[in-house]
Design a protein around this nucleic acid. Structure first.
Lengths: 148, 148
DNA sequence: ACTAGATATATCACGGTGTTATGTAGTTGG
DNA sequence: CCAACTACATAACACCGTGATATATCTAGT
């Protein structure tokens, strides 16, 4: 049913040179704050070495910082830099715009059906992540008003 | 505000060792029949060299065949083998099961909202692909494609 | 028919992304 | 203290993508 339908996201492509995992990792860091490499790896469903490498590249590009964890000498706390936060915000806007451009081309009744399915879709996302609700609100700097 | 919601698909992971693009390429071949490398590349939004490489790997793994195009000596017609068709069918089932397991955990009203949004989601997918309706023919028998 | 240009695919060099296996340093508890 | 565990890094490898470019074929103008 929903089969391949949820692949829409795959076709929404924003210019940015970020990989899918990189983008989601930054978004996660924005939502959850500084996190450990292993936690990020688990959340993004990639191996720990993959996340280590990604974090290194993101650090090289200035989007994240790696700080020592005062509570555990083995651990590293990965956090967004201002540039990282800015990139997350920028991509969020670009993505929302892209989706909006698609949704605008739907009929009124289709749009309404989507609108009413939003809570279900949101829950679906939560369930897919199998973790606490993904805080999609940019609580870092400014708030974006959600329009219907 | 569908924003990150459409990322659900990203978390639905079937065991199979196919890359995202490989999986979609096989599905496309199942839906459209033998296609040229360039057409596949455009449809999957990757470069032609990337598709050439992917097709080579898929051929090596026995999932596609490459036949000469009788109408154009430069061209190659890529088509599914029986193994390729079987893999597509298998993945379709696995994916449907995974989605169903998620949807089952929604409330009845959420499920109904999703159900009613299905046409809209379908249209959204079509629009995202910006091409003719994706023939999601469930049964993977034989498909015939009218030439232009 | 010849030839210039367009087209379809392949190849090359390169870097990002992922895997498993393994190493190293820090933590934990008997 | 020391063995086991944990967090991260590294190595070796394959895959996936890019742009630049080569080769063969098709198309059209002359």
């Amino acid at each position: 049913m929903l089969d391949a339908l949820l692949s829409v996201g795959r076709r929404i492509d924003i210019g940015s040179s970020l990989s899918r995992t990189a983008a989601y990792t930054l978004a996660t860091l924005d939502a959850l704050g500084p996190s450990r490499v292993t936690d990020l790896a688990e959340r993004e469903a990639v191996s720990q070495p993959a996340m280590t490498g990604l974090v290194q590249r993101l650090q090289a590009s200035g989007h994240v910082r790696r700080d020592a964890d005062p509570a555990d000498g083995r651990s590293v706390l990965v956090g967004l830099t201002d540039a990282g936060r800015a990139l997350v915000a920028e991509r969020r806007l670009a993505y929302a715009d892209a989706v909006a451009r698609l949704v605008d081309r739907l009929d009124a009744d289709e749009q309404q059906a989507l609108q009413q399915a939003l809570p279900a879709l949101r829950r679906l996302t939560e369930l897919a992540y199998e973790v606490q609700p993904m805080v999609t609100t940019t609580r870092s700097t400014h708030h974006r008003k959600e329009s219907a």
